[in-house]
Amino acid sequence: MSISPYVASIRARIGHEFLLLPGVTAVIRDGARFLLARHAHSGLWSLIGGGVEPGEEPADAVEREVLEETGARVRITGIVGAYGGQPMAVTYPNGDEVGYISIAYACELLDDATPDMEEIVELSWFSREEIARLPRRDWIDRVINDSDRDQ
């Protein structure tokens, strides 16, 4: 889903103005490799995640987002950290300005993952060295580095 009814209702009142939103991020590892998704709207690689809906627990939101975007279920194994600020700001192609405050969860993949082809057009596993060469959201480097605390 590209925009929730909740965000759409706010956008109807504020237009494209900056909106601060709670989000979640899934850090899915297979040893030293990380599952990244290439986003349709930007072509950039990032970790899988999205917004928390009103009344939704963040842990439930990360499970929902991964399922919606990849068709796969995950098991949460810990919290990597909380992130925000300028690195988490995005301007979408339609002009909507958003800043996310995201809780990153360490997750174990329970099923095969395939991109939804709406928000996510490609999924792949990458080592840190490979990630450093990808066109990506820069903030994921910090999250990936912080994920070593879980290991």
Rank of each mutant, 00 (worst) to 15 (best):
R128Y: 07
D138Y: 09
L110S: 03
W139F: 14
L110Y: 07
E130T: 09
S124P: 03
V98Y: 00
R137L: 13
R128M: 11
E129M: 10
L134K: 08
W125Y: 13
T114N: 06
A113S: 11
G95P: 00
R142L: 15
A132E: 11
G95S: 01
V143L: 15
W125T: 12
I103K: 04
D96H: 02
S102C: 05
I140G: 04
V98Q: 03
E129D: 14
R137E: 10
L134Y: 11
I131S: 08
D138N: 12
V98R: 06
R142E: 14
Y105V: 03
E118M: 14
R142C: 11
W125K: 10
G99H: 01
T114C: 02
E97Q: 05
E122N: 00
S102V: 04
I120E: 00
M117Q: 11
V98E: 00
E118H: 12
E118F: 07
M117N: 08
V121R: 07
S124K: 15
E130I: 11
G99F: 02
L110D: 03
E129H: 07
L123G: 05
R136A: 15
E119Q: 12
Y100Q: 04
D141F: 09
D116A: 06
M117I: 13
L109M: 07
P135D: 12
T114Y: 12
D116V: 04
E97P: 03
L110N: 08
L123D: 05
D96L: 08
M117H: 10
F126G: 01
V121A: 03
D96G: 02
V98S: 02
R142W: 14
R142Y: 09
I103Q: 06
L110C: 06
E97N: 01
S124M: 08
I131T: 10
S102R: 08
R128I: 14
D112E: 14
I140S: 10
V121F: 05
V121Y: 01
C107I: 01
G99R: 05
A132G: 09
V98N: 02
D111L: 07
T114I: 12
S124H: 11
I120V: 15
I120K: 04
Y100K: 03
G95T: 01
D116P: 02
E97I: 06
P115C: 09
R128H: 08
I131F: 07
I103S: 02
M117T: 06
L109T: 04
